[in-house]
Amino acid sequence: MNIGCANCRTTMNFYETGYLFLYHAQCSDKPFKEAVQRDDNTYVLPYHDIDSLSGMLEAAGHKLIEQGWTCSISDSDKPGEYHSAGDFLNKMKYRDMIELIQEGEFVSYLQPIMELGKYELFAYESLLRSADPSRRINPGELFKAAELTGFHSMLDQRARKTAIESRVGNIEKGVKSFINFLPSTIYNPEYCLKHTFHIVDKYGVNPEDLVFEVVETEKIADISHLKSVLEVYKREGMKVALDDVGSGFATIEMLSLLQPDIVKIDRSYISGCDRNPDKQQFLRTVIHTAGELGISVLAEGIERKEELAFCKEIGVNYGQGYLIGKPALVPEKPLISAG
C-alpha cells in the first residue's frame, strides 16, 4: 500500500481513563514515581483524568524527549502503538483537534470570486469549517496541528471531500469551486488522489468546474513533485491555481514549468495597491508574465473600491475579498455588480 494512503488512515485514540505506557531500551530511570515497572524497561501508569495526565506529561516532556522514551496510551493493560516522546506529546497537546479531524463533521464556507471584466460571478472558494457551531476552529491552526501530529494527509483529504460535497444543491453548474490542497500531503498523486476523483464521480460534478489551489506556495521545495501533482489534476479535466504568488513564483521560468491555469496574488500586494507604486509595479510584472503564458490572474483580499478599480484597470481577471463577498455557509452573490 502506498505510504500516502497509509498516512491518510493514521489513527489515535484518547481515553478519559486508562493506562500510560513508557518504554526505553536502555534507560533505567523511573519516568514517574507512580509508574509501575512491568519488566526490565517498560513502565505503566494508570490515570483517571486525561487532562491531568496531559499536564504531567507536558511538565516532564523535556526529560522524556531528551532521554529517548517512547509512549503509548490504552484503555486496557496492553499498550497500543508506541510513539516517540516528542510525537506523543504533540498528539496529547492537540488531541481535541485530532479528534475533530478523525471524527468530526466539516462544512465548507463559500466565498464568491468575481470576473472583473463583466462584474459577474465566476467561482466560490471553499473554506473549511467545523459543522459543530460549538467547535469553532481556526483553519490555519488546525492544519498546523495536523502537520505537527502527522494528521495533515487525513485532514487535507477530508477538506477536499467536504469542498466537493459543498457544491451539491449550492453551486450551479458552470460556476467553479476553488479547493485548497497541500502538495506535501500527496505522496503519490496516482494513488493519493483516487479518493478525491471518486467523490467527483459520485456526485456527478463536472471536473471542469473544479479548481485545485496550491496553498503555501512559498514553502514548496520539490517543484518536480508539485508539477506531477498538477499534471494529474489537469489530466482529469480539472483546473489548477497557485496561491499567494510572490516574486519567487512570479517568474516566466517557474510559471512556464508548472503551467497553472490561474495565479492568485496575495492580499499583501492588493491592500492599498491603488496608492502604492511598488505594489503597482509588482502587479504589472505578474500580469505581464502570466499574460505571456496564457495564465489568468486573481487578486485576493480586495476590501476597497479603489483597489477593485485599479485591479480591473491593469487587467486582473478575477477578484476576491470582503468588498465582493464574505464566506458564508449558504453561497451569496457578489456584492458588486455591473449595474
Rank of each mutant, 00 (worst) to 15 (best):
G291N: 15
R9P: 00
K227G: 05
G150P: 08
S126G: 13
A25Y: 10
K173G: 12
A59F: 09
D201R: 14
F143K: 03
I3H: 14
F106H: 04
E165S: 02
A221L: 12
G319P: 09
E216Y: 06
P189M: 12
D261I: 05
G150F: 10
A145Q: 05
H62Q: 14
N188I: 13
I98A: 05
E213F: 02
A328L: 11
V232K: 15
S177N: 01
P189K: 12
A60H: 14
V330M: 09
A250M: 00
I3K: 15
C27D: 15
G80N: 12
K239G: 04
V316R: 11
G68R: 03
L230N: 09
L100A: 08
E236A: 10
G140S: 13
Q320W: 02
S271N: 11
C311G: 04
T285H: 15
H62F: 14
G80V: 08
I265A: 06
G291Q: 13
G117K: 15
F181R: 01
S271L: 11
L323K: 02
Y43N: 01
D244R: 07
S52L: 13
A299K: 12
E172H: 13
F310Q: 01
N13E: 14
R160H: 02
D29M: 10
L193W: 07
G169R: 13
K91T: 03
Q26S: 09
L308N: 06
H48Y: 08
T217H: 06
K33F: 10
I164W: 06
A146P: 05
K161R: 13
I336S: 00
A85T: 03
F88R: 02
F21K: 00
F143M: 12
F282W: 10
G86C: 10
L329S: 11
R284A: 09
A60K: 15
N41V: 05
S84T: 12
K279F: 01
R38E: 14
A163L: 01
E332Q: 15
I302P: 04
P331E: 04
E231P: 06
V44P: 00
M56D: 13
Y94T: 03
P139W: 03
E216L: 07
P207A: 01
V330P: 00
K264E: 09
P331C: 04
P207Y: 00
L226R: 12
I186G: 04
S74F: 04
A250H: 02
A241Y: 11
Y318A: 06
D40S: 14
K219A: 12
I98E: 01
K176C: 09
G315P: 03
Q111A: 03
L193I: 02
L110N: 08
G86D: 15
M56T: 09
